[in-house]
């Protein structure tokens, strides 16, 4: 049902621009108004989400210890897995954001030999996720050739490396292959494993299908049903310089691609995709484990009357002495 719902929504998102572009005035709607609205929703929505997170206090460190904590000087601490300094935290965040360190620890449990529960490392999700995210980043960065004039050298260098093997014409980008392969794996992973399918929601299938739709429509436009990309750059340059124009002769496929991207931008701040911003607000990742070094005061604390051990000893010194209990002060 969740899968069916997602498929229907994607089909509608593809059909809308496909059928309506070409009708009077709707080129402007799909080429200019929808992308602007989508970008506004994306930017404002993401900032609102971030401000909402920033309003929540995180008074205590929640150390998820994956390594030796900073302790006695002769015990070697694990600076990245269990950082006690800001520098260590930056290192852990970099590992998390760039290489998905915590997902790398992913394990799977299975009943083996009929009754023996076995845990083993499962790197496939990590590999698929990492492949998708990096390919997506490079694909997005490559698209800056449509948004910048003159095209900066770094974009050209990236394109050169991405088309390194000079296979086919137009030359096939490696990231195009990787992103579709990774998304296909991540999608079928949810379908094939029955337990995973049981817990998968429309909110899990939909983003994967949406991204797959974006990637496939882009690839289709580049390699198969080619269109006038100079016209497309006129449109995108008009959008980013706030003087929008919709040139003639751009195929409906381009508008499908653009509409799916707009849908992604609108969907982004209100879905699980905001983990892009949320990862920076993960208390188990962005706080140093220095609870034993530094006292962290709860911001909503009222003054609590405490009874320290020294006072306790003072109060019961005679009784403790009589019972021959060890005392800090005689």
């Amino acid at each position: 049902m969740n899968l069916f719902f997602s498929l229907v929504v994607i089909a509608v998102l593809i059909a809308l621009p496909w059928l309506l572009v070409g009708a009077a005035g709707l080129d402007y709607l799909f080429g200019v108004i929808v992308p602007y609205v989508a970008l506004a929703v994306f930017v404002v929505g993401l900032i609102m989400r971030v401000l909402q997170w920033a309003r929540l206090p995180v008074p205590f460190r929640t150390p998820t210890t994956c390594g030796q904590q900073k302790s006695l000087p002769w015990i070697k601490p694990s600076r990245l897995e269990n950082p006690h300094s800001t520098l260590g935290v930056i290192g852990r965040m970099l590992l998390e954001v760039l290489f998905f360190r915590s997902l790398f620890r992913n394990t799977r449990s299975e009943l083996r030999d009929s009754s023996r529960l076995t845990y083993f490392a499962d790197k496939w999700l990590w590999a698929g996720g990492l492949a998708f995210h990096w390919a997506f980043l490079i694909v997005v960065a490559r698209h800056f050739r449509f948004f910048l004039e003159p095209v900066p050298w770094c974009v050209s260098v990236m394109e050169g490396l991405d088309s390194f093997f000079q296979v086919g014409l137009p030359i096939i980008y490696l990231t195009d292959v990787i992103i579709i392969a990774a998304l296909t794996y991540l999608f079928f992973r949810r379908i094939i494993n029955p337990r995973l399918r049981y817990i998968s929601l429309a909110a899990d299938y939909f983003p994967l299908l949406l991204l797959l739709g974006i990637a496939v429509s882009g690839v289709w436009m580049r390699y198969f049903d080619k269109t006038d990309i100079v016209g497309i750059k006129e449109l995108t340059m008009g959008l980013v310089t706030l003087s929008p124009v919709v040139p003639e002769g751009i195929s409906a496929l381009f508008f499908v691609h653009l509409f799916l991207v707009s849908a992604l931008l609108i969907y982004f701040p209100f879905s699980k995709l905001v983990h892009a911003g949320g990862v920076f607000f993960s208390p188990t990742r962005n706080l140093a484990n220095n609870n034993r070094v530094k006292r962290h005061i709860n911001p909503w604390d009222y003054p609590v009357k405490v009874h320290t051990y020294e006072e306790y000893e003072d109060e019961f010194r005679d009784v403790m002495k009589a019972a021959e209990m060890p005392l800090e002060k005689e």
């Binding site: 948004f147 910048l148 004039e149 003159p150 900066p152 006129e234 340059m237 008009g238 980013v240 310089t241 003087s243």
Partner: peptide
């Protein structure tokens, strides 16, 4: 970037 470039877009 495009405003600073002052080139025809």
């Amino acid at each position: 970037y495009n405003l600073a470039g002052e080139v025809s877009v």
